[in-house]
Amino acid sequence: MKLERNRRVKKLAIWTWSWVATMAIASFGPEFIWDNHPFLTPFAIIVNFANGILMILANRDLFNHFDELEKKIHLESLAITLGLAVVVGLTYSLLDTTNVIKQNAQISMLVMFIGITYLTSVIINTLRYR
């Protein structure tokens, strides 16, 4: 069971790092590597998108290997994260469109918020069942 778990965690880690790397290439490549080549930029974005899909599938594989308590912990954390992401994301967008905040709303801020919220929720839920 542990060996299989480790295998799936490694698979997810590989696809996640690969997704981050292809995201960086697609972001900085047009300016610093291939000088806005008309074919290479969309190609890099497609590769990054495909990589993201494989990362999601690897995450699903890991989730399917969780036992019942782990699934409950992660489902509760996902519910909290999804709810907060929608509410906080739309509030953040509203603050931008109504010019309450000076800077433009960045999607990267929402992604960071989602990551931190999910991690915190998993830690709190895990502690609840200790």
Partner: peptide, 25 residues
């Protein structure tokens, strides 16, 4: 946990009655 096919944390949570196992478990 190894025999039943769940994690040690799950056995601990069941023993402490913080978590009710599924019917198959």
């Amino acid at each position: 946990a190894e025999i039943i096919g769940v994690s040690r944390q799950t056995i601990n949570a069941i023993e402490k009655e913080k978590f009710d196992p599924s019917l198959p478990t």
